[in-house]
Design a protein around this nucleic acid. Structure first.
Length: 293
DNA sequence: GCCTTATGCTCAC
DNA sequence: TGAGCCTAAGGCT
């Protein structure tokens, strides 16, 4: 599901809900093997880097969570039929009363019409994770090695130089490079497509061919776009003037991307049919006219 | 119901 | 480069 915006959003919410608190941690169906190592410990803080989450329980125990494509957190209880078989982790504040019955049965993390959260994180007692790619305890050294591997993250105040340097030397298409987490971290398939469109840059341009000014512009846009995606839990990349009704705050069902998942439809800017093609094993979307160069 | 697709990543060849 | 892993939703029949 998530790109960097979602991951950082969870880190913020879970920090507000639990940082400094002692936690109950369990794997409700035995598939989360490391739960005993964390049970009863204080959650010091929640870290986010690129698409990785780190729940720091101190004493060399950082719970690493990677949501992959399907993983998701719920602040509340899952419906019973979804509770079988899958990898799950549940954690709640020690002292929270009647945790298992405290929340409504299927409270999702957001439901309001405008896409904003309907739940005050300070009031969240417990959270549940399902279907992550990874959910395991890292010693500090392993976490540090992960950080070392990842490229700069636009949401962490990193300097982009290392990313620019790698791209500047690369003979691979920029559309591939933006997806590589050791080049730049936190960007996924939606932001790849939309950042390239907004820069009017062809996804097929080789890294080394991309002008430095264009790279700077992409980085400069990535930060506020990812940030906006954190607040709304929705990735909105179009400018109001390019939306069907010019809405400042588009309703939930309205299209809010330039090219992502818009193949076969006319480009909002020039009317040309948006194209789709596999790149780096993922669907790439682009406008062949706006992104000719 | 079945099929496809999906905001991700790793591993084997 | 392709297969495999994870889960859910939507568009078919």
């Amino acid at each position: 599901m998530p790109e960097g915006n979602e991951v950082h959003r969870w880190a913020e919410r879970h920090t507000e809900a639990f940082a400094g608190k002692r936690m109950h941690v369990e794997g409700p169906n035995g598939r989360f093997q490391d739960s005993a190592a964390l049970e009863g410990r204080k959650l010091e803080r929640v870290l986010a880097v690129g698409k990785h989450l780190g729940y720091d329980f101190g004493t060399d125990r950082i719970l690493h969570v990677h949501l992959g494509r399907f993983g998701d957190w719920t602040e509340g209880q899952m419906p019973l039929r979804e509770m079988q078989g899958m990898l799950r982790l549940r954690m709640w504040r020690i002292g929270a009363k009647a945790v298992k019955d405290a929340l409504e049965p299927v409270r999702r993390h957001y439901t309001s019409d405008d896409g904003s959260s309907n739940l005050d994180p300070a009031k969240v007692d417990w959270i549940e994770l399902r279907g992550p790619t990874d959910c395991s305890v890292y010693p500090q050294a392993k976490w540090d090695a992960l950080l070392k591997r990842l490229g700069p993250d636009p949401l962490n105040g990193d300097k982009p130089d290392a990313a620019f340097e790698k791209i500047g030397k690369a003979k691979k298409p920029i559309g591939v490079l933006l997806m590589e987490q050791d080049v730049m971290s936190g960007i996924g398939n939606i932001y790849r497509a939309e950042l390239l469109f907004r820069a009017r840059l062809s996804p097929f341009a080789l890294g080394a061919e991309v002008p430095a000014a264009t790279l700077k512009a992409i980085w400069k846009e990535a930060k506020p776009l990812l940030k906006a995606g954190m607040v709304d839990r929705r990735i909105v990349t179009t400018l109001p003037k390019h939306r069907p009704h010019g809405d400042e705050k588009p309703p939930l069902k309205q299209e809010v991307h330039y090219v992502y998942r818009r193949s076969g439809k006319p480009c909002w800017v020039c009317g040309t049919t948006v194209l789709k093609k596999d790149m780096a094993g993922r669907s790439l979307y682009w406008c062949p006219v706006c992104q000719a160069g």
